[in-house]
Design a protein around this nucleic acid. Structure first.
Lengths: 260, 260
DNA sequence: GTATGATATGACGTAACGTTAGGGTCAAAT
DNA sequence: ATTTGACCCTAACGTTACGTCATATCATAC
């Protein structure tokens, strides 16, 4: 039978020599022969096994699991693959979330220098939250949808909008008083629900209904990420603890009341 | 000013005490005060800074980068975020690929892995190059010569062949990256040489030695004439420019290294 | 005075290798 | 026969972001 040295095997399989040493060490892939002088020699079976290993490694299985899978004769491969699949799906979702957050963060940063346009509508709200979501909404649902909903907002009239703004400020100051309570307590959650209601009205149709839970949950993160959002509630001084409190409260609310 | 002990800070920020120790150690987050007895005391600024850190950590930034970002005043945050975004997009794509592979694997396992026909050997190669050349080779050298060399290929075993296939795919994807370089540049030619080596092994004796230069040069033309040959390298979308690039590179290689 | 809880430093463990470091071995070329 | 150069071996540290003891000191309450 033809045998292969480490280097050869490394070359045709595309892994490093060190990797083969390591796999030998942890018992994942042992050479079929050790010569007098301790040289490793691999046969065809080992090449085959290595291919298997690399396949699973490609799938991001930890080596420990691979070892177990390959040494357990009655291993349920399909089940393992499906499990792994769901883990991958989770990772993917998480990355999608991160991407969203990055986008809004980039938006926020850029917005800091530019923008001063016709959206006086949003004045007075937790600093520029409205405009941020306006941009997001535009990119998601198109400009005309958003402008449509803004027209509806207009119908409320200046005074109507101001009333909403005032209401929102009230909720915030009430929440501020509760900042040392448990974010998941009933009373806090009631206020959060009120806040959500106001925000919803404010968003109108610019954020489509089934996107609102996500958008709202994202709000909590924004408070933490950029203290300016709370600046006009806390009269200027940074309140990281309050922001954290809001984040937790909002997260809890979104998870328990919005996702269906 | 209000100060926080490790435990307190850990609690309100949601990280472990050990993490704070560690961040202190690597200089990422130093307490503003060290008491007589070395107790760490953190002020508001540190809490704020920690929030920033955690934000970036959420984004999967390595701590080293976070440290640099936060200590470099003129750091281009937007740029960093966009870079990071593209990295995340890559991860996401990779995961999507893995998911696809897992699905097909599960399918295969359920169907009861068969495949053992002669043409199965050529699977994974630039679509049908193998079989096409089989036909061509047969018409040129006769059936028995080809079958003989296929027996030799069989000796490599499935895994050996797969290793070759993998190697070939690697070369292609590396070449794809270089597709805007000069086809006659050293680096491109090096990869072409590798490719030729692999093809040669694959052809074995089915293509007689002194015919290989011609056959190989012909390969470049095939790429241009039939886009399917590159289909599985370019994940489906036609890449006429890449094909032309390969054709030139191969022609140059054959003329300068193979003919004599 | 002592029990309890918080804090400190130090050091090992983790995953999967990469990377020297220091020394044998084998085949070909001299 | 020897030198070269390519290849082989083991040992061991470095990497990331902490978790988990171990051991010792400190603060607070009873």
């Amino acid at each position: 039978m033809k045998t292969l040295t480490v280097k050869k095997l490394a070359e045709i399989s595309g892994v490093s020599v060190r990797t083969l040493h390591y796999y030998d060490q942890i018992g994942l892939l042992r050479p079929s022969i050790r010569t007098e002088k301790k040289y490793r020699l691999y046969g065809n079976d080992e090449l085959l096994r290595l291919q298997q290993i690399l396949f699973f490694r490609e799938m991001d299985f930890p080596l420990k699991d691979i070892l177990e899978m390959m040494d357990t004769t009655d291993y349920d491969l399909v089940k393992a693959l499906m499990q792994h699949k769901s883990a991958l799906l989770n990772r993917k979702r998480r990355i999608s979330d991160l991407l969203k957050t990055i986008d809004t963060t980039i938006d926020n940063l850029k917005k800091g220098e530019t923008m001063k346009n016709p959206e006086e509508l949003y004045k007075g709200f937790p600093e520029e939250v409205g405009t941020t979501y306006r941009k997001e909404a535009i990119s998601k649902y198109g400009v005309q949808t958003v402008e449509q909903s803004e027209k509806e907002l207009m119908k409320l009239g200046k005074s109507g909008v101001e009333a909403l703004q005032k209401e929102m400020e009230n909720v915030f100051s009430e929440l501020f008083v509760l900042k040392n309570d448990n974010p998941e307590s009933d009373i806090v959650q009631e206020h959060i629900a009120r806040h959500y209601g106001i925000i919803s009205k404010f968003w109108g149709d610019s954020v489509v209904s089934d996107q609102k839970p996500d958008a709202y949950a994202g709000l909590g993160d924004l408070f933490v990420n950029d203290e300016r959002y709370l600046a006009n509630v806390t009269d200027g001084s940074p309140q990281p603890e309050f922001a954290l409190f809001l984040q937790k409260a909002i997260k809890y609310f979104a998870e328990n009341n919005l996702e269906k």
